[in-house]
């Protein structure tokens, strides 16, 4: 019986390892290419990290740098040149600005509304809630075109506002927070009222702190979605490099596959992709919990 179980366990691991290899394949390719020299990439040699021989890089010299500056190991070159070619920190900063603004505005709008829907009694509450439920069905990507038309008419294309505005209302956030507030006992709010707090103070001083776990889950959901979003920025940012978010940067790096150098290109893609992945690996339990919580409603 014991031996049989170990064989079963072995089989499961065998299947899962094959799966894991397939899943990791592009990550391996990405990291490996960002470390190797162009020749190694083209001849598919050198394993994961390549030979790392110090050499002079011709593309770099052509760009106008001295030969001395252009002589280094491939991995140094790839990452150094990536940062020389494109304003990567700027893209990352745009990503931070956009995702944080979106998240903060979403909370500012959703939290009071969720509180009112969960804990206050007023005329029309049911109607507002059914409106929320209906809006839950509308995918914002789906209505991107009319939104784009509206923004274009308002002259907002190619601005930060265009990146942020359509996402300021998160119906999902309202729904999630309302469900959470429903579980908060009424006594807590009544106690706060007895202590002399106004409704505003209750929202920000009582409800907000109790909602931290749900808020964290929502933060992960929101930040991941908007950091990785490509469709919407692609629609509304047409040429202004100063407004590029990380995915738009990635698109720019890619250029033409057959002409450019692949090493620096992959190095920039790795740089842009890494922050979120590192955050995920460090706090993966929170991330997975957050995604499950927001996923299961």
């Amino acid at each position: 019986m014991e031996a049989k179980q170990y064989i079963g366990e072995g089989w499961k691991h065998a299947i899962l390892i094959i799966g894991a290899i397939v899943v990791m394949l592009p990550f391996y390719m990405m990291v490996s290419m960002s470390l190797k020299s162009q020749q190694e990439i083209q001849s598919i040699s050198g394993g994961l990290i390549g030979a790392q021989e110090t050499q002079t890089f011709p593309v770099c010299v052509k760009t106008g740098y001295s030969e001395e500056t252009c002589t280094m190991k491939p991995y140094q070159y790839n990452y150094w040149f990536a940062f020389e070619k494109a304003p990567i920190p700027r893209y990352l900063m745009n990503g931070v600005i956009v995702t944080l603004s979106i998240f903060i505005i979403q909370v500012l709008v959703a939290l009071p509304c969720a509180y009112a829907l969960a804990k206050l009694r007023f005329y029309g509450r049911e109607f507002v809630f059914s409106m929320v439920l209906f809006c839950l069905l509308i995918p914002v990507h789906g209505i991107a075109l009319p939104l784009y038309v509206m923004l274009a008419q308002a002259g907002l294309v190619d601005t930060y506002s265009a990146l942020i505005l359509p996402w300021t209302i998160s119906v999902f956030g309202i729904f999630l927070m309302r469900q959470f507030f429903m579980t908060v006992p009424d006594e807590l709010i009544d106690a706060a009222r007895m202590d002399g707090m106004g409704e505003y103070a209750i929202v920000w001083k009582v409800m907000l702190p109790t909602a931290i776990p749900a808020l964290l889950a929502f933060a992960i959901f929101s930040v991941v979605a908007h950091w990785n979003d490509y469709f919407w920025p692609r629609m509304v940012i047409t040429g202004n490099r100063d407004l590029f978010t990380p995915p738009l940067g990635i698109r720019e790096f890619r250029g033409g596959i057959d002409s450019d150098e692949f090493g620096p290109m992959m190095a920039s893609i790795v740089t842009v992709t890494v922050p979120l992945i590192v955050a995920f690996i460090i706090a993966q339990k929170r991330f997975i919990e957050g995604i499950t919580l927001t996923g299961m409603k």
Binding site: G19, A20, V23, M24, P26, F27, M30, V224, W227, N228, Y230, P246, P247, I250, R251, I269, V272, T273, L276, I277, F280, Q284, F287, I288, I291
Partner: peptide, 12 residues
């Protein structure tokens, strides 16, 4: 298995 969900799809 969860990595692809988090990673920027465009980069991947």
């Amino acid at each position: 298995f969860f990595l692809p969900v988090m990673a920027t799809l465009l980069a991947m």
